[in-house]
């Protein structure tokens, strides 16, 4: 700090009616781009997105070791594995199928659960609030950026799978055991619809992780908590004795996207799942905003 010479030269005259410093506008604080770059610079963001690109490659390489061992497990949809190498669309479908239940949940929980809690644990949250970034704006920007990264992860996963799957296995119709094969154009639309529904279901994870993120200072707690609750819900959903309660579980309709593969498309469960997911996400986000705009920041 030697030889520093601060000769204040600021002009204290240009002050807004609100008393803000020159150039300060609440609506301009923490721009989307700034937050996007903040998150982009983080290793976990890069790793997560990188893995989304890597996973289809790993699966593709694994399929090269095919030993014609037809022991792919039973089940109506176990044959997705058999069909995975029949074309780019099926390869993408398979990649989504294996990632939907856990990997994507973790990734979305990571992006949404880590965003506020990690700032709190670094101590940088209080400096953002002291700028001041209005709390609702901070949450909105953080949420939008987290959702954008989650969507990006989904798109990267599907996009990479589609690209390398098509390069390797060709542009063939989408096959499944539940319905007649779909022409590639139609199949692509179905695939996009599947991605869309998956994104909606994952909103519940996003909501839960985000709520936990504003309630705790431990990023790991928020991410892990969201994933744990998701798994708990999945387990409870397996217990048929719970009867009608199960349809209120956030994971109950998480596999309804399979209905999009049949002909005609079964949208009933998708609609119910969408209603359920939107309700949960709205409640979680509402609670997160309600809590964060009122709480004392003690980190």
């Amino acid at each position: 700090m030697a030889g520093s010479t601060v000769e204040p030269t600021g002009d204290t005259t240009s002050v807004a009616a609100s008393g803000a410093a020159a150039g300060y506008r609440p609506a301009r604080t923490l721009p989307f781009g700034a937050e996007f770059r903040r998150q982009a610079s983080r290793r976990r963001t890069q790793l997560a997105l990188g893995f989304m690109v890597l996973l289809p490659l790993i699966i593709l390489i694994a399929f090269q070791f095919d030993t014609n061992d037809d022991d792919n497990g039973g089940g109506e949809f176990g044959s997705l594995i058999d069909l995975a190498t029949s074309g780019g669309l099926n390869f993408t479908l398979f990649t989504i199928f294996v990632s939907a239940s856990f990997l994507l949940v973790v990734v979305v929980a990571l992006f949404c659960g880590d965003t506020v809690a990690s700032e709190a644990s670094w101590g940088s949250l209080r400096y953002l609030l002291a700028i001041p970034v209005p709390r609702a704006r901070l949450l909105t920007v953080k949420l939008l950026v987290a959702l954008a990264y989650s969507a990006l992860a989904l798109i990267l996963l599907a996009g990479t799978a589609l690209a390398i799957g098509t390069l390797r296995y060709g542009w063939s119709p989408l096959r499944s055991t539940v319905a007649a094969q779909l022409e590639p154009g139609e199949g692509l639309l179905r695939l996009l619809a599947v991605l869309g529904y998956l994104a909606i279901v994952l909103l519940v994870v996003a909501g839960l992780a985000f709520l936990l993120s504003v309630t705790t200072d431990a990023a790991l707690g928020a991410v892990g908590g969201a994933v744990l609750l998701w798994i708990l819900s999945s387990i409870l959903d397996q217990i048929t004795a719970l009867g009608a309660i199960r349809s209120f579980l956030p994971t109950h309709y998480s596999t309804a996207w399979l209905g999009l593969l049949s002909t005609p498309v079964q949208t009933d469960d998708i609609v119910r799942g969408t209603v359920s997911a939107i309700c949960y996400a709205t409640v979680f986000w509402g609670l997160a905003f309600w809590r964060f705009t009122r709480k004392d920041i003690t980190s």
Binding site: A20, Y127, L129
Partner: peptide, 19 residues
């Protein structure tokens, strides 16, 4: 909390907080 006038305050509270 969140008053625009906070923008005229520079602060170091409870230690540094950096990325």
């Amino acid at each position: 909390p969140g008053s625009p006038v906070l923008s005229r305050i520079g602060a170091l509270v409870e230690g540094p907080g950096f990325l």
